[in-house]
Amino acid sequence: MPNWCYSRIKFTGDYKAVRKLYNFIAEQFDIPFEREPMHFDKNTFLGTFLDRAGLDSERFRCRGQITDWPGPPEPCDDDSGNCEIVIYTETAWCPMIAMWLAIIKKISPNVQLFYASEECGMGIYQSNDPDYVDNYVVDTWIGSRETIPAEVRGTIFGEEFFEDEISEDRLRDELLKAFPDGSDDSTADLIARLDDLDFGDDNGTSVHKWEYYSASEQD
């Protein structure tokens, strides 16, 4: 049973190029594939996209599925003329980006790909997206408020919270609320102090910095 890696994949480019890729992706949602027990639904299975693009699904990692389909692209209002669509995928163990690069090359070569992938069990917090790189993902879960450490009460670490584009400045502001004597500490040291707190068995918090990986480095 794999751990599941969650990815946000953004395709950008001029309207015609993105629209062509969107049509290819969206078409699959309505194709009446035969359903097979114990396999992914073929409408969402990533390997089906490779097959439809005329690519060999045996050559790419594709054990996963789309979990959220894109809405149609709209031309941007800025001078770039670019637009974007976003999909979300769930894949076994790791990001599976190479297959999308191959599909882009085959279907609409002028599209660019930006992604952010998280799989906490494997320690994966990887992205090539400027909106994510150098920012942090913060995830706090609360099952028993009685055991929340006093230090974090009144901070984002003392309540149910999830955000994946936390700037370092904002993160430090919250950490220094918990550790007001830590103004000379590095952000990494403050996170280590947070990790050392006892949240009890029913609570927890996870703070990780996004690590830059180019799309071409991913399988």
Score class of each variant (00 low, 15 high):
Glu90Thr: 09
Arg52Leu: 10
Pro75Phe: 02
Glu174Phe: 07
Val207Asp: 07
Tyr6Pro: 06
Leu55Ile: 02
Asp181Ala: 11
Cys120Phe: 00
Val137Trp: 02
Gly121Pro: 05
Pro72Glu: 13
Glu84His: 05
Glu217Pro: 03
Pro70Met: 10
Pro149Lys: 04
Lys42Ser: 15
Lys20Phe: 00
Leu175Met: 11
Leu113Pro: 05
Trp4Thr: 05
Glu146Leu: 14
Glu159Gln: 12
Pro32Ile: 12
Ile66Ser: 05
Ile9Asp: 01
Asn43Glu: 12
Gln126Ile: 15
Asn82Gly: 13
Phe179Leu: 09
Asp131His: 13
Lys10Pro: 00
Trp4Ala: 08
Asp195Lys: 11
Thr44Phe: 15
Ile166Pro: 03
Gln218His: 15
Met96Lys: 06
Asp78Gly: 14
Phe24Ile: 08
Glu118Tyr: 08
Glu27Thr: 09
Pro32Asn: 11
Val152Gly: 02
Asp68Cys: 05
Glu174Met: 08
Ile97Gln: 02
Arg145Cys: 05
Val111Cys: 10
Ser57Asn: 04
Pro95Met: 05
Gly47Met: 02
Trp93Met: 07
Tyr22Ala: 04
Ser183Val: 06
Arg145Glu: 14
Gly200Asn: 06
Ile25Thr: 00
Ile97Trp: 01
Ala17Glu: 03
Glu74His: 13
Glu34Val: 10
Pro37Gly: 06
Cys62Thr: 04
Asp164Leu: 08
Gly143Met: 01
Glu84Val: 04
Thr205Asn: 08
Leu176His: 09
Thr187Gly: 11
Met38Val: 12
Thr48Pro: 03
Ile107Thr: 12
Cys120Glu: 14
Gly143Thr: 02
Ala17Met: 09
Asp79Ile: 09
Gly71Cys: 05
Lys16Phe: 04
Pro149His: 04
Gly71Ala: 10
Asn43Gln: 14
